[in-house]
Design a protein around this nucleic acid. Structure first.
Lengths: 349, 349
DNA sequence: TTGTACGCGTTATCAA
DNA sequence: TTGATAACGCGTACAA
């Protein structure tokens, strides 16, 4: 087992100084061709590679991005990671992943861990618990220490940083308008409690679309799910709530759900109640998930372009990292809005 | 914007030496209580945290694990990551993620990138292209440099390292036996080409189960898909192949598929051909995916316990990293076999 | 053309 | 009880 070779070892072997080796390897004009050849050959033979950690320490730059997400077993987030990775890699960065697991304290601990020199900047999406507690001090502290943050999807306006979001409002409007245009008269909304920013915006889009079409939103058609429960586990509870909704409002002929699970559950319940999709009931979900495509019937969705979000976030962050930030120049923050796309499948006419 | 504070700055402020500060913060008995209090108060005030990079350089230990996987937008792999993250975090490690995207060269580049000091060891699953080319030099070189590797799921026997695998053979046997016991007489197998080790083993399990039940495997019932195509894109091609299989063998009453997509496609085609599941046809898939649970009908699966695999892999790696490896002690490699579990849903009787 | 010295931030050892 | 020094591995300004 031959350990990784260092400049010092090469220098000793060839009986020259460390700096000579260093310069020779970087092809400096200061060094004679003879020495360069000798050193380079030796380095190649022993497969010399500079130690990243030493470089990071010296340059005060790790070329590593930290990404903190609430959950990785989730198509949306893993697609975002893929986007980040893609851009990061081509631009010479590595990606270190931290999971908050929707917990405030884990988010804080993870960020503190990484902020102590391990990375150059963060890309993150806020955990539910943090959103609920509205405690954002760790984000501000991190930025105060000169470490940039790019937030995506779950963002809050209280924090001044670069952001990448989907056009939740417009996406929802498009979806609900589609339902209206397809003839739905009584459209239900299945959404989350309002502290989830995207849930709130998507709810707003639903309202706007109805208003645009001179339809009156009815509160009994709006089901706000408390998603602090993990519904992958408590699926029954979710389905029960939806069933109650349908039973109390037999005239429902359209459903807009703010995520995939809600939409699929709605379809499942509808099937159980003997409704035909899309003839009796049309359904659209806001999601980038895989379930939609393979569902029966396949689900019409509002696509969020998760991978693109990741790419944009990575570009935003790296741009900031590499922009020689002129001292007293006012810092500027960007918000990139990703357009949604309505993907029509079999759950709508 | 206050940059992160260092020992040196604290020392200067308090007019003591750097080493005094360092010792005071670690509560050394060498330092007077007075000084300790002073230093610790100051450090707390300015929220001092040791710089990870400097520590890594000094200790030649990064406390970071590198994980290289072929694809992140895939439930199996993201669950494995979750398992790795969980264990790594509780044991004081970070996780850095590299994606090979099923490409040999990306796998090599990613590993070289990380092997230069960024991490202490690898957890990885081999890319398809690497498996096809059977070029494993990068794994051996990495290990020769003293960097341990733990492989999971897609492994090869040629390489000597710790491994975590599922019991593919037994899992497949259980599945196919189940079909036989449920009355299937003519069971088709939808699998991959043999260079994918798990595909090969699962095929073997199918054979074994049939033999155990005195049934004769028929080659015309075995469909080997060339999965170098991305079937998420070329879904039609996949479904066509399966349709041919069904049409050429009308007596098929059971299907065992080595992954989720194949199983779902089989169900879709069957539905199209007017077959009722599970009455005319029973289907089982080898997978840990989400699609199964939400499919119509829901799919009976052989579960791989992906998260547990990740946890075991992380424990294996960290154990090795932290075991004071006695010089001439023979190095020992473990292979952990994870048991599968048959999860019965609606696609079987 | 080559080598010395320094600094990145930390800790351990040894001297004062 | 405190401080100076060396070391981790690297690159660079400056001296020889």
């Amino acid at each position: 087992m031959k350990r990784k070779i260092t400049l010092k070892q090469i220098a000793r072997e060839l009986d020259v100084s460390i700096s000579t080796v260093s310069k020779a390897l970087r092809n400096s004009v200061e060094i004679s061709d003879d020495t360069k050849q000798k050193v380079q050959a030796f380095a190649k033979l022993y497969n010399y590679r500079p130690n990243n950690i030493a470089l990071s320490l010296k340059n005060r730059k790790t070329n590593t991005i930290g990404i903190i997400i609430p959950e990785i077993v989730h198509h949306f987030f893993s697609k975002v990671i893929r986007g980040v990775e893609l851009v990061a890699n081509t631009r010479g960065y590595n990606v270190i992943v931290g999971l908050s697991n929707e917990s405030f304290s884990k988010e804080v601990i993870n960020m503190e861990m990484l902020a102590n020199g391990s990375i150059d900047g963060f890309i993150l999406s806020i955990s539910k618990e943090t959103l609920q507690q509205q405690d954002y001090h760790h984000f501000n502290e991190t930025m105060n220490q000169g470490m940039p943050i790019v937030m995506f999807d779950r963002v809050v306006s209280d924090i001044n940083c670069d952001k990448v979001i989907v056009d939740d409002l417009d996406g929802s409007k498009k979806a609900v308008s589609k339902l209206v245009e397809n003839g739905c008269k009584s459209i239900a909304l299945i959404t989350t409690k309002d502290y989830v920013s995207v849930g709130k915006l998507r709810t707003q889009g639903y309202m706007d679309a109805l208003n645009d079409h001179k339809l009156i939103p009815k509160s009994e058609l709006i089901l706000k799910i408390d998603d602090s429960l993990d519904y992958e586990v408590h699926l029954d509870a979710l389905e029960n709530e939806i069933e109650q909704l349908f039973k109390a409002n037999k005239n429902i002929d359209g459903v807009f759900a703010v995520n995939e699970l809600y939409a699929l559950s709605a379809m499942k319940v509808a099937r159980k109640l003997g409704l035909d999709i899309p003839n009796d009931l049309q359904v659209i979900g806001f999601t980038d998930g895989v379930l939609s495509k393979h569902a029966t019937p396949s689900l019409t969705t509002v696509s969020q372009h998760a991978q693109k979000m990741g790419e944009q976030a990575a570009n935003l962050l790296i741009d900031k990292l590499e922009k020689g930030l002129n001292e007293d120049e006012e810092e500027h923050f960007n918000t990139i809005v990703i357009n949604t796309e309505l993907i029509e499948r079999a759950s709508t006419k």
